[in-house]
């Protein structure tokens, strides 16, 4: 029983409760780096790490946090985890850290993290909260990664920096420029809502 519930907690954010499609949350901080798959991967891993651990920590403290300063405490804990991501990147992946620039810090304001903390972690035990945060992060990761794959492939003819399309391919520069991000995200949301979500609402 408990196991199946945990499973449900894990699967839902990946499919029909995906934070990006359903709530269009949290795209701010990462969309800007989706013109390269590699950068996107690192950013989304950072978001997953932060979401999972903040949810877990806040769930541990949930019965002790005074309600009037709840938001401040949550922000503080999220920020601490983001600083950890920032320090680790700076020390061990300095090149990636330089490329991502200010975007690592912006994970703090990623609405998904605060969203999961408020909606789930405050009312659930630590383990389910950890799973929920982790799964939400993964659901977020694959959507952002698919955006990045499309953008990098069409915009630079490569994936993960490796040239895939031959020299016959003319790069669609618009894809690596800001408007490309808006269009690709819109199209992906459209496709998912027309296919996956429609079936589910009929069922």
């Amino acid at each position: 029983m408990a196991k199946s519930k945990l499973r449900k907690t894990f699967v839902e954010p990946l499919g029909k409760n995906n934070p990006v499609f359903v709530q269009i949350l949290g795209i701010c901080s990462t969309l800007a780096v989706t013109n390269k798959v590699q950068n996107t991967m690192v950013m989304t891993l950072g978001v997953t790490f932060t979401t999972a651990l903040s949810s877990w920590t806040i769930s541990l403290l949930r019965n002790h946090i005074p309600s009037r300063i709840r938001m401040m405490v949550e922000t503080m804990i999220i920020a601490a985890f983001v600083i950890i991501v920032d320090i680790v990147l700076k020390a061990f992946y300095p090149e990636m850290w330089k490329q991502l620039g200010p975007y690592v810090g912006l994970i703090i304001t990623n609405c998904i993290i605060m969203g999961r903390v408020e909606a789930f972690a405050l009312n659930n035990k630590p383990l389910p909260s950890l799973v929920d945060g982790f799964a939400s992060g993964l659901g977020y990761t694959y959507v952002l990664l698919s955006i990045a794959v499309v953008r990098e492939l069409l915009g630079s003819g490569s994936i993960w920096g490796i040239r895939i399309l031959g020299s016959w391919w003319t790069n669609w520069s618009i894809m690596i420029m800001p408007p490309g991000g808006f269009f690709v995200l819109a199209i992906i949301i459209w496709v998912i809502r027309e296919t996956v979500m429609k079936e589910e609402s009929h069922a």
């Binding site: 408007p179 819109a186 949301i189 459209w190």
Partner: peptide, 20 residues
């Protein structure tokens, strides 16, 4: 508007054109 594009979808498309 096609039902799947309503709301956020169409807003993102317009934002794309605005960005251009």
């Amino acid at each position: 508007i096609p039902p799947g594009l309503e709301g956020p979808g169409i807003t993102l498309v317009i934002a794309g054109f605005m960005a251009m």
